[in-house]
């Protein structure tokens, strides 16, 4: 691999296959692990519908309750901006859609590049703001470990390299494109084994919390 063109071929080929394999393997492993643990037997008298309670909590938790919301308003707004921005960029940039179509067999309309551009820029700035907040907030800083900073980094890199690639800020273009794909592969490899699994597990966690409470007759 003595040039960027071969580097690009390697990231688009073998490296992607390895990353995809680890990603899928890890996710399956985590799910089997979580579900095989099961739930502890509930001895309390049944006072409500567990399923409906779980479903309700799944959605009510999209917003924290009022007093908490006031205290962490910045985190909620910034959190939403980043998550929406990340997923809009991820799911609605045309070159990405082509990839999904080849993998899933169906596609959806994309957004014009200038919109994706602004959304990406907002996401990047918000992520930086969130990192500064984390580093300056005494409690949050204390709670943050290596994994939190790792998760931030591997989420930030695909956005950053994608932005640099889109604007041809690093030459030659195949090099920055390859680095962008490589950063996504890094994200895919570490995804199942870090807190990033919350992309999927938040559903299970919220539902279980709501279901347990509902069964006991507590409304959340």
């Amino acid at each position: 691999m003595d040039n960027y063109a071969d580097f690009l071929l390697w990231v688009r080929g073998p490296a992607f296959h390895i990353a995809l394999a680890i990603f899928l393997f890890g996710i399956l492993l985590r799910f089997f692990e979580i579900f095989s643990l099961g739930r502890r037997t509930e001895y309390a008298e049944v006072r409500g519908n567990a399923f409906l309670g779980g479903m309700r909590t799944l959605f009510t938790r999209f917003l924290p309750e009022k007093t908490t919301l006031k205290r962490i308003l910045f985190l909620v707004i910034a959190g939403y901006l980043f998550h929406l921005g990340f997923f809009i960029t991820f799911l609605f940039f045309d070159p990405h859609i082509v990839l999904f179509k080849s993998a899933l067999g169906f596609s959806w309309p994309g957004l014009p590049a200038p919109i994706i551009n602004i959304v990406t820029l907002i996401s990047l700035l918000v992520m930086i703001a969130l990192l500064i907040y984390r580093l300056n907030h005494p409690v949050l800083r204390l709670l943050s470990g290596f994994q939190d900073y790792l998760a931030w980094t591997i989420t930030f890199l695909p956005l950053l390299t994608g932005y640099l690639a889109f604007h041809h800020m690093i030459h030659p273009y195949p090099l920055i494109l390859a680095l962008h794909i490589l950063s996504v592969e890094l994200l895919m490899i570490l995804f199942p084994f870090t807190k990033l699994m919350h992309t999927f597990t938040f559903i299970i966690a919220r539902w279980t919390t709501g279901a347990r409470a509902a069964q006991k007759g507590v409304s959340l």
Partner: peptide, 29 residues
């Protein structure tokens, strides 16, 4: 194939990973 589509072989990698993930997952479970 568009530039953003990976080189051929992804489906095979995914299939192997799926089988391995399921097998190890069942064992861990």
């Amino acid at each position: 194939d568009a530039l953003s589509i990976p080189l051929p072989g992804a489906a095979k990698a995914a299939a192997y990973a799926g089988i391995a993930g399921t097998a190890v997952g069942i064992a861990a479970g």
